[in-house]
Structures are given as C-alpha cells and as structure tokens.
Design a protein around this nucleic acid. Sequence first.
DNA 1: TTAGATGCAAAGGGTTTGCAACGTC
DNA 2: GACGTTGCAAACCCTTTGCATCTAA
Lengths: 137, 137
Amino acid sequence: MKRRNTHQRQVILDILRQEHVHPTADQLYEEVKKAVPAISKGTVYRNLKILEEMGLINVLKLERNRHQYEYRRVNHSHFHCESCGAIFDIDVRFDAELDSNFISLTGFQVSHHNLEFHGLCQDCQNKQKNKTEEEPN
Amino acid sequence: MKRRNTHQRQVILDILRQEHVHPTADQLYEEVKKAVPAISKGTVYRNLKILEEMGLINVLKLERNRHQYEYRRVNHSHFHCESCGAIFDIDVRFDAELDSNFISLTGFQVSHHNLEFHGLCQDCQNKQKNKTEEEPN
DNA sequence: TTAGATGCAAAGGGTTTGCAACGTC
DNA sequence: GACGTTGCAAACCCTTTGCATCTAA
C-alpha cells in the first residue's frame, strides 16, 4: 500500500520528533489539536499504528493499560521511575554487544532488543527521604 | 495490610510456577476454573495484582492490549517471536553487569531491568523459508 | 480519477470496581 | 469477631472500526 503524506500524520510525527517526549495517544491528541483542531482520536490512533509499521516510531509499554510513543532513535534505552512514572532517555553504549552475544549463545535470529531500567528518579528519592525525616518512627 | 492465604490465590500461583508458562489473565482464568470452577475473573485480576505487589510474579507487556504473567525467577530474559508471539525463557548470564554499569554511568538508583529480544523463532523462520521456496518469483 | 486518509460515533475488549456475602486467622 | 477476599455484574477506559466524505497524487 502506497502511503500518502497527510498534514495530520506530519504534525503527529513533528511532535514526536521533539527530544525526550513520550506522550500517550491522548496527550498527543490534545497536542495535535492545537495545529489541527478538527482532528479525531481515531486518526491519531490510525497514524500511530502506521508510523510504527513504517519504523518511524517506537511504542513503549511501561504503564498498565496504555501505550506511550516516541520517535525512533538508535542506541538508546529508558529509565522508568516506579514512583512518578517519568521516563528518561538514556544514550547507551554499554549494550552494544547484547544482540551478537545473544545470537551466538542461543542461535535465535534477533531483529532488535528492548532494554528498560526501573527504579526511583532523583526527585522521588528526595521526596522519600524528606518523608522519612518528617515522620520518624 | 496483612494478606490472607486463600485457595484461589494459591491455585493461581501454582499454575504460574510451572516452567516456561506465560499465560494471559484469560488463559489463566480458564486454567484455574479446572480446580476452582466457581472462580470469577475479577478474582483472577485482583490476585494477579496482589501477587505482583508481593514480588512473586512478573507482568510481561509484549503484545498490544494485554498482559502476560510469569512466576518471578532471577536472571532470565525473554525472546519474543514477532510472527507467532511465542515467548521463550532465556537464562542469561551476559547481562549480569548491566545494572552496575548503568548506575555508574548515570547515577540513577536501579531496582531491576527488563531485557527482551525480538525476532523470528525457528518455526517461523522455517515457515518463511518454505513459503519462499513454494512461491518463487 | 482513485485509492488512501479523515471525522464521527459506536463497538470492542481487557481490566477495574462497588457491594453483599463469605472465609481466614 | 474483624477484616481481607470472593462472585457477580456493571462500569471504565484505551483502542479499534464501519461508513460516508474528503483529498493527495
């Protein structure tokens, strides 16, 4: 199927192309409306699926029951804060040999891998610390 | 909150404790019914959430719009077939230093990481190969 | 001209939840 | 007896889809 270049799809991709942005479909919808007020949610969802098929964006499945989207960049992974849900982009180099190691160990044919780190971001660490100091046992 | 030890929760955990099992909530529900015919889906979902909080199981978010569950084991990652959706458990040793490398590089406080490889499993590779041979251009 | 894309609204489907009854400790 | 848990069914909410209309090429 020959894809056409629509204004709506272009706007969606432009928004995702900003660095360190990982909106949900709904947040994206609200953002796109500023440029294309008449856009419908269905169009957002359809285009997200198309852009994913085209390999231009990634789908992140970090939170329960909803997806987040990002522009596809090479060599980066994510840190996900378990408390506030924030996502940090991490430019990794330390996982460069994972795929080849995996292939030589298992014989599987690998197209790509997904690597996420989970923990507490600095803000949430501070909040926890303050809370503990305020309410000592 | 002090958790009680119910038959339903025990059966759910027992099923998940089998090796290489990654059922969806619905598949699990069907399976649990064999031992507890009157169980409801709500109970399955509630217990899955509780078992996750207790750190006894992991939630896999590989397929669109549904979760899969597994008993938590240390030091293993997954291979996910992009064609048939099968999940293979991989006992990894090659990612042992990921967390410490990540911490020393970024300063984040890491509790754990999630590593998935994606590609084609052997069966699906063969199917593709046969198809190509049957229908040459 | 024509097939892909859009807007709208309804439908789908996995997951959550309110409530009365029940079971564990 | 207290309170966590269950079954049931309805509600939720994110996502998909059918259809008439529009539009990029």
